[in-house]
Design a protein around this nucleic acid. Structure first.
Lengths: 189, 189, 189, 189
DNA sequence: TATGAATGAGTCTTCATTCAT
DNA sequence: GATGAATGAAGACTCATTCAT
């Protein structure tokens, strides 16, 4: 009798809800583990809705990853702007990164994509692009080699946060970046 | 009967073959993607053998991961011994890491476990233990903070290699580690 | 509102467009293969239109078959009239049939219904009716037995065309019909 | 509790049972209409069995059609041998065809394949091959043109039987074939 | 009335797991 | 003990049909 009442019509909202649910699940259980059922349950829509809006599960996965990518790209842009203003000193970079580490949502978005990239060649380019962007941001001030090293270190920080509850403390990040950048640190630092 | 000559009896050997095949597959396609059939084909054993030796697929997965863990542990021990002899200078650590990056097998074993750890809490402890061990090795010479930073950097190097074809060049590693360790580097370095 | 200019109101026209599209598809891909979506796409009408005009897909299928039936019935009437004028000689019948074989549209309509009749008892009566009509046309001139044989032969010709690219040559048809009718053929024929 | 007891092991028998069930269904409801479920029910095996023995439904369909093809080929061979002994006279051919029309199983096998050929190009060749074989059998005695006409007529007979309960009476077949062959029939016939 | 979004039933397919041989 | 057949529980996907707008 009481069949679940048909929901109000809202294509855009529903599509969005599905993608968001899928993106969340990607960060939580990984790309491999998402299923139509899982997404439908999380988005609280009937199973059929997930296939109505996305022709294949792969399409849905891609849309979810794209959402995460957009998130990270945005973050990246903000970072670039901040660095442009503050200068890419160990201190400013460390502060930015540390702030990013504390913002779980962004962090997870980023790592989810990079994790997925491990077994998906198409995403690999994306992961490398971000590394490249960080290097580009830091190269003017520090040269490409130190910039590369710093990017690797930053990547390590993100992974560390992904696998540990507590992020690396700010002052450790700062000191390490200063070392990588070759900054002469006065005791006052 | 005259059925295609049944393999020689060697339960331990067969079990081993299955685990090795499963471990290879974990590094190649990820934990999520392994199936009984895939492992059986790779190990060149009949399907039934995979369920004979392991009650569930999860058990088999665990055994495969354990094998990878053992591999990495062994690597870690070797590293510790080398460092004990050579001293944990930027140069010796850089050389060791760079060598490890070039050794695809070890690398993949390590990253496979860590990748799996992203979505498997039980493996997270393992991944952290390795970080901890590296920190422990470096702490006597550099203090826990610099050791922590170095461990993060090294982790970044491993991930970098996982997502890029070329490892980070040795001299960049060395310079960065020197900076992280706070070593005073002469221009001649 | 300014939604993409809604089509002009023309319910009958639209209904017709849908049925025609469905009939075309029946001849092309078979009754089993038609779907609302396929028909809507072919008729270039929105999906909803196909269900608005036909309560169920079966109703739509039936309407499509009916259209094909009407087509064939009309053809049959024309044939009857021609034969009434020309007389049902081997030559005139052969010429008519051969012309029909070359007219792909009519042919396909006919065979589509008969093919569908193989697995649909309701259509079987229709297919038999046509056979009966052909027999009726030929009986006055040739008796019911030769008329029956000729109808069978003609049916064979239609199927032959359905499964082969080239129709049976006119002179073979004519000779065969002459033989079936028991006409005395002079060598000059 | 009382879960359906697992059946005895008999791979060959089971595979056979599935193909036979599928072939039956093809003759009854058509190639398009068969589903795993339908076949499983008819063969009285669990759903999974149908996919265990055939990778895809298409494979199963093909196997079923192949079985029907084999049936018909066998029939064709028998016919060829009989004609070789008796000579391809109207009388002997008519008797053979009439007998075939009465044997429902063979008839259905034949028509099922030919019906399927209407919408499956791959089967078309098969259907044409049979026509060709009949023509080949009759050509030595009657020339290719009369043989072709006879083959068309015979095809018409088979379709007639498929759509009607009663076959065309023997004497009509015989008379028609005699006419097609151009045999001079004496009243004594 | 016209449209296309919403829903779920049903289809193919894969595969873990059980168990006869 | 070794093998692979047997079974059913999911999972992806399609689409008829309903119904809000």
């Amino acid at each position: 009798m009481s069949v679940a009442a048909r929901r109000k019509r809202d294509p855009e909202g529903r599509r969005q809800a599905i993608v968001v649910a899928a993106a969340e699940l990607v960060t939580e259980v990984g790309v491999e583990a998402i299923t139509h059922r899982l997404v439908a349950a999380r988005a609280d829509v009937p199973l059929g809705a997930t296939t109505q809006y996305f022709d294949t599960l792969d399409d849905l996965r891609d849309a979810a990853l794209q959402l995460l990518v957009a998130h990270v790209d945005q973050q990246m842009t903000a970072t670039r702007e901040t660095l442009a203003v503050q200068g890419a000193t160990a201190q400013s970079v460390a502060t930015l990164i540390h702030a990013a580490l504390v913002d779980a949502t962004s962090m997870k978005a980023d790592r989810a994509v990079v994790t997925a990239a491990v077994h998906d060649p198409r995403l690999r380019a994306m992961a490398r692009r971000w590394s490249g962007q960080i290097i580009d941001m830091l190269t003017p001030a520090h040269g490409i080699e130190r910039a590369t090293a710093a990017a690797v270190f930053i990547d390590g920080l993100l992974w560390h946060k992904q696998l540990n509850d507590e992020p690396v403390p700010l002052h450790i990040i700062e000191t390490a970046l200063a070392g990588i950048f070759g900054e002469t640190r006065t005791p006052a630092d």
